[in-house]
Nucleic acid binder design. Structure first.
Length: 542
RNA sequence: GCGCCUGUAGCUUAAUUGGAUAGAGCAUUGGACUACGAAUCCACAGGUUGGGGGUUCGAAUCCCUCCAGGCGCGCCA
């Protein structure tokens, strides 16, 4: 059962008769008649049914039913839209996980927002959600970063050593060095004459510093994690040895040309992967295995990885690890988000993180603000290769959809404000305070009093109808891992409200139309709940 | 070469996973404020869903093929 594309076909439609006809071996039209007689005609809230060739069943719901469904908006208030489908299930969502060797770029902003919103959605569906950031603080890249930092750090004291050839951009490293210099002075130089430095401390502090920059950036767009998981922690104690022993005992590895290989092809990967190199060092993939084993031990029912398209080669190997250690296939899902392309008008801007060029996430946030960043990054499916048009973002206000939604919310805020300014015959101070304090009494009583209510026009009815859909949207967004369902819904709701507002007078002279006022207040609540999921502010005035 | 993702109006995109006349926004054009906020609303226009085949009652969606773009295919991380 679903909403028809075309509103003329009714409130709801189903193609069940056509889908089932081949299985039951009856003609779709006959089956549709039977479904109508046996089921629909017995439902109290159905107003009318129409059966249309080749077998669609369309029906309308009673106004009273739609209107009364709004009472849930008030009784549930901030939790309207939630459901309990995921109660008792633990899920972990890992996203961003950018190496702590440079600033976040715009793509990371997309994963950050998408991951955060998706986490919110799972929470609204009753799941116990953990948001995790995996920090690659172990291995070659961290070492190279540390060497870069060391080089610039020593330069501060007039000591010259060479800068690593494939090093990170000096501009990025420089910001870390400035902070280290300021906070620690010459603490990392143990003996200047013999040039003895505390390299371990430099590495650790440099990574920590970079990580704190990353945290600040993410915080600025409201992306917070429950857990920052250090790759290096995988190698503490005897974890590594224990893991390798486990793999050997279970026949998941073999030796060849002095290296240790993981039999990932046996589990669907397209090639086997090296875990321990010829020189005895573990590869990045060894960490992946231990990390997934660690996640499994922590007892999650579901794991979601959100990865950029440049990591899509990971799908089969991560799935392979999961299978090899006995996890269900559907317990590990990997969402691949397509990359963000920066566009300035018609010009495509080339991004190069390694060269330190291009716009960082920080720059973007400063440019367009948190709400716009979150809105833009949550309005598309993971699959769209989105273009972020800077010249559009620069314009900042006029054609920005986030304002459209926020404006709807603010407009209703000003209606409520208006109630106080005018003296009304049918609404007193008691009612106003109930409305203002978000007490449901006024609205639920009003709904209760309207036993036989029929909508005066389609704009009233459509608004109520869309409001009643919100819980389904929250559910579907979860089932489809689709944050943009929420964004799209809010845009639709806002449009419905603006239309409603322009075609109906809520307050005239000294009377308020109670039904319409209730509708507007309900819309405000649902807008607020939806914007909360997106992490976008819901202003009272703009 | 192999693999993953994508191609829809001038631009950015949607289509409830195979349903009905492919919906929106921006831009363009015309209209609506001495009534609750005009950051809004209304109207008009814009399409051979990259091309071509196929599957069936029915295809933007599934299959094949070609074209175009993004990304990936290390004892790098």
């Amino acid at each position: 059962m679903e909403e028809p594309k075309n509103k003329e076909f009714g409130d709801l439609t189903t193609n069940a008769a056509m889908v089932l006809s081949s299985q039951i071996k009856k003609k779709p039209m006959e089956l549709a008649e039977e479904i109508n007689k046996e089921i629909l005609s017995k439902w109290k809230f159905v107003e009318s049914v129409a059966i249309i060739a080749p077998g669609f069943i369309n029906f309308n719901l009673k106004d009273k039913f739609i209107f009364e469904s709004l009472s849930k908006v008030f009784s549930e208030d901030g939790s309207y839209g939630e459901n309990k489908s995921g109660t008792g299930k633990k899920i972990q969502i890992e996203y961003v996980s950018s190496n702590p060797t440079g600033n976040l770029h715009i793509g990371h902003g997309r994963w950050g927002v998408m991951g955060d919103v998706l986490s919110n959605i799972y929470e609204k569906n009753g799941y116990d959600v953990q948001r995790e950031y995996y920090v690659n603080d172990y291995g070659t890249q961290a070492k190279i970063f540390a060497e870069c930092v060391k080089s610039l750090y020593l330069k501060k004291f007039g000591i010259k050593i060479s800068y690593p050839q494939d090093g990170y951009p000096e501009a990025t490293v420089g910001t870390v060095v400035e902070k280290l210099y300021k906070d620690y002075g010459d603490k990392f130089i143990l003996n200047r004459d013999e040039l003895i430095t505390d390299d371990a401390a430099i590495e650790k502090n440099a990574i920590d510093m970079m990580l704190s920059f990353i945290k600040d950036t993410l915080s600025s767009i409201g992306v917070e994690f429950d857990n920052w998981f250090l790759e290096s922690s995988l190698y503490e104690n005897n974890n590594f040895e224990t893991a390798i022993k486990f793999l050997r005992e279970n026949g998941l590895v073999y030796e060849q040309e002095n290296a240790l290989w993981f039999k990932s092809t046996s589990y669907g990967d397209d090639k086997d992967r090296v875990i321990i190199r010829g020189d005895g060092n573990p590869t990045y993939f060894a960490s992946d295995i231990m990390y997934l084993m660690n996640k499994k031990e922590r007892g999650f029912d579901y794991l979601i990885y959100i990865l950029g398209a440049d990591h899509h080669g990971y799908i089969s190997r991560l799935k392979a690890i999961g299978k090899s250690i006995g996890m269900n296939d559907d317990a590990v899902s990997i969402i691949i988000g397509q990359l963000v392309r920066l566009v300035e008008g018609k010009e495509v801007l080339k991004m190069s993180r390694r060269k330190g060029k291009g716009m960082t996430l920080d720059d973007l946030v400063k440019y367009v603000g948190k709400d716009a960043v979150r809105y833009f990054f949550s309005m598309n499916s993971f699959d769209t290769h989105m273009d972020f048009d800077l010249s559009l973002a620069k314009k900042k206000s006029n054609q920005n959809p986030v304002f459209y939604v926020q404006y709807a919310h603010a407009r209703i805020g000003s209606i409520i404000k208006k109630l106080k300014e005018i003296e009304l015959d049918n609404i007193g101070e008691k009612e106003i305070s109930e409305i203002e304090n978000s007490s449901a009494d006024f609205c639920t009583n009003s709904i209760g009093n309207m036993k036989k209510y029929e909508f005066k026009n389609n704009s009233e009815r459509n608004l109520a109808w869309v409001l009643s859909l919100f819980p389904d949207i929250v559910y579907d967004a979860c089932k489809n891992n689709a944050p943009y369902f929420i964004t799209q819904y809010l845009y639709r709701l806002s449009g419905e409200f603006h239309y409603f507002y322009n075609h109906n007078i809520i307050i005239s002279k000294n009377r308020a139309n109670i039904i319409r006022l209730v509708l507007a207040i309900a819309a405000k609540k649902v807008l607020k709940n939806g914007l909360d999921i997106l992490g976008i502010s819901a202003p009272e005035k703009m």
